[in-house]
């Protein structure tokens, strides 16, 4: 599964650490998701999408 978290982060001028703190996860988790090494749970995926104010499909692309 691909994702555009890095793009949205850049648009909101957020570091991985800042996003991680907002979502109450570790920076390594954000990094692992961005690199495609870890697929987040549905809950976390919705949290990420909601945080950026977009739908889940805009952040995560199932291929």
């Amino acid at each position: 599964m691909k994702n555009r978290i890095k793009v949205f982060r850049a648009m909101h001028d957020l570091t991985q650490e800042a996003l991680a703190q907002e979502l109450k996860v570790t920076r390594q988790t954000i990094l692992a998701i961005e690199k495609g090494k870890y697929d987040p749970s549905l809950e976390l995926a919705f949290k990420i999408a909601r945080f950026f104010g977009v739908s889940v499909e805009e952040v995560f692309i199932y291929d």
Partner: peptide, 9 residues
């Protein structure tokens, strides 16, 4: 200690 879903997994 901050343990998130990836650490639990």
């Amino acid at each position: 200690i901050r343990e998130d879903e990836r650490a639990v997994l």
